[in-house]
């Protein structure tokens, strides 16, 4: 039986948080199943700074090829398929992110291995690995049995909330793919997001200002919280009508429909027209002074309280130590 292989999400010189989440989960499964944990990075040069911080895998691999220097989804999938095909690991772990979506199903397709995408839980029962995947917009969970052959798992980021921090792996071994077909993809450039063109439908975290913020003067406070959470400020209609925020920030029937991973409503009462545009958000948290506000009918968590007390206290706690 093969090992557990985590594909490191290595982009522009940094390893994504989700890689450490996967490593943490792989470690846990490895202990249960008696399997070792390996981690793989794809690059065109030896990135010392990164390979030195990939732990806590038992082995770390660097797939090295001059064509794989910059982001190269298909080529990466092909190189990884060649590497993994030789080794036949028990599980290949990656994530349902822009990186993992190219690679996971690609490897599965090239090698004929099963794929489980949108995985939100992995457990072992009687030495059988069981994966839970979120389907139908999160309305249904499907539980699948991983067959006795190598399987590719693409996990939803944030599913394994006990990430392990970066540490040094035992050793880094280099593998160079032979006979890789010439690249049919090429990265031309990276386009940085512009601050001006915020698209609230794509933000993963939305901090939504409602009528309860009372005045445009309070917007900086809301923006500060959004920054601290790594999110974007959106609004309900009254706030946009008042001209405090532009129309492209409006959630609801006459605005945009959003489905972020976190919707945090601040002083949003939850008119039906607003709920229509956000009720499918993955996690809805609302803070409002009125316990009867309809937003609490769709929220998963609620705080009955004054946003002007709770928000500054939250910002204080989110502020990195020493700053």
């Amino acid at each position: 039986m093969g090992n557990l292989v985590v594909l490191a999400e290595y982009l522009r010189g940094a390893v994504a948080d989700v890689t450490f989440e996967l490593l943490g989960k792989a470690r846990e499964l490895g202990n249960l199943l008696g399997l070792s944990v390996e981690v793989v990075v794809v690059s065109d040069r030896q990135p010392d700074d990164v390979t030195g911080r990939l732990g806590p895998a038992d082995r770390a691999w660097l797939i090295l090829h001059p064509d794989l220097g910059e982001f190269q989804p298909e080529g990466m999938a092909r190189a990884l398929a060649a590497f993994l095909g030789e080794r036949r690991p028990r599980l290949v772990l990656t994530s349902t992110t822009a990186f993992g979506m190219d690679v996971a199903a690609g490897i599965g397709g090239l090698l004929g291995w099963p794929v489980v995408a949108y995985c939100s839980a992995l457990q072992v029962a009687d030495r059988t690995i069981i994966a839970t995947s979120q389907v139908y917009g999160g309305k249904v969970l499907v539980e699948v049995e991983i067959p006795d052959e190598p399987t590719v798992i693409a996990a939803l980021p944030g599913s394994f909330p006990a990430p392990v921090g970066p540490s040094a792996p035992a050793a880094v071994e280099i593998w160079e793919p032979a006979g890789l077909q010439p690249a049919r993809l090429r990265l031309r450039r990276w386009v940085e997001p512009e601050a001006a063109d915020v698209d609230i439908t794509r933000a993963e975290i939305l901090v939504v200002a409602g009528r309860g913020i009372k005045s445009a003067d309070n917007l900086p406070l809301i923006e500060e919280l959004a920054r601290a959470l790594g999110g974007v400020v959106a609004a309900s209609r009254p706030v946009v009508d008042a001209g405090w925020l532009p129309r492209n920030r409006q959630v609801g029937k006459s605005g945009l429909t959003v489905r972020p991973r976190l919707y945090l409503g601040l002083g949003v009462s939850g008119a039906p027209e607003h709920l229509e545009g956000m009720k499918d958000s993955q996690l809805i948290v609302a803070i409002n002074t009125d316990r009867k506000a309809p937003i609490f009918d769709v929220a998963h968590y609620g705080v009955v309280g004054d946003i002007f007390e709770v928000v500054p206290a939250l910002i204080e706690r989110l502020r990195p130590e020493g700053h």
């Binding site: 209609r237 009508d241 129309r247 409006q250 029937k253 006459s254 605005g255």
Partner: peptide, 14 residues
């Protein structure tokens, strides 16, 4: 609200 105005709130408010 008539004549489709019910579904043109933001548009009309411009």
């Amino acid at each position: 609200g008539g004549g489709g105005g019910m579904w043109l709130d933001s548009f009309t408010s411009g």
